[in-house]
């Protein structure tokens, strides 16, 4: 259910983008997302609910391509980067410092769309 809401929010963002775009948009073949691993979004579930959500919409048939961005932190004890792990309580392995700076992993980004010009737009 959570991912259904997330998908709905994604569709709303795409809808808003479309409205600010040229009135005649070519058919969208795929949508590229970047999803950080330190977010509330599960790529597999998003993928699953996407296929149901776009049926009979202007995005019908579009593929969702998700790139996962791993969590990377910076230890403020020694400035080294590290991959925070839940099992380690997100602390740095070098200095056991708490997770202060996140370099990446919080992304929820629509990177781009590919158009499919071989089929007419809906």
């Amino acid at each position: 259910m959570h991912e259904v809401d997330m998908t709905r929010a994604l569709l709303r963002s795409l809808e808003t983008w479309k409205q600010g775009h040229a009135p005649q948009l070519p058919r969208v073949g795929s949508v590229h997302l970047e999803v950080g691993s330190f977010t509330c979004v599960e790529p597999d579930q998003l993928q699953f609910s996407w296929n149901a959500a776009i049926r009979d919409t202007w995005l019908s048939g579009a593929r969702l391509l998700i790139v996962t961005v791993p969590l990377l932190g910076r230890c403020l004890g020694c400035m080294a980067t590290y991959s925070p792990q839940a099992e380690q309580g997100y602390r740095s392995p070098c200095c056991s410092h708490p997770m202060e700076e996140i370099i990446h992993g919080r992304e929820l980004r629509i990177r781009s769309v590919d158009y499919d010009l071989s089929t007419p737009s809906p």
């Binding site: 997330m6 929010a9 994604l10 963002s13 073949g29 980004r109 781009s112 769309v113 158009y115 010009l117």
Partner: peptide
């Protein structure tokens, strides 16, 4: 063969919500 064309959005997935 189709000619792929791309648009870069760089938009937050929750952009519509953030706007509101």
């Amino acid at each position: 063969m189709h000619m792929p064309l791309q648009d870069n959005l760089g938009l937050n997935l929750l952009a519509a919500n953030e706007q509101q």
